[in-house]
Amino acid sequence: MFVGDYMTRHPLTVTPDTSIVEVQGMMAENNIRHVPVVEKGKRLVGLVTRQNLRLSPIELSSLNVWEITRLLSGLKVKDVMVRGKDVITARPDTPIEEAARILVTHRIGCLPVLEEGILVGIITESDLLTQLTNLLGLQVPGWRATIRVPDRAGEFAKITAAVASKGWGIDAAGSLPTPRKPGYWDVVIKISAATRDELVAVLQQIEGQELIDIRATGP
């Protein structure tokens, strides 16, 4: 689970001399919000986001409509982009949770992925959220069961043992500390091999655990 596996390879890019009007067109047409700026050899020199393209209301109020048009048509990417070392980047071997942390702490939406200064891809919030859905098995149809377990070693093994004893497989699994209830964890597992009743029967038998939700999910 590294950035290199989930990033978008061959992202759309622009050069410092591309006009702002063209970048706006590209973003609108392809429904994207971030465009890395590269020079020869795909070396990253900056990043343009929709925020960069926005004019501040103060600036706007002082201009008339013709001046705005002129201002826009003369602007180049290099005039508005986030420059070189101010761009926060990731590497293909950055773990995805680390990438998520960077995005959240810096309040940004994407990380260009670099390999020795060369742009090899881009990873965005959407990519990471997509992988969250995969992590919890949204892409396969089946039963999503939430089990509340005490915070001690061996509890997860009980679940896997119970499921394995029936010959079913676990399609996806994830766990988080239970909110507002210290000492417990919520485990979500996704199983497609069993029927709802079979699954409920097996999961309810596990000692010390509580089946708090079961529902069908899928693409």
Binding site: Y6, T8, H10, L12, E29, N30, N31, I32, S126, T130, T133, N134, Q139, P219
Partner: peptide, 12 residues
């Protein structure tokens, strides 16, 4: 599994 909810723009 590489599933996407919004299609990527074509390369060409």
């Amino acid at each position: 599994m590489q599933t996407r909810f919004h299609p990527l723009p074509p390369i060409l």
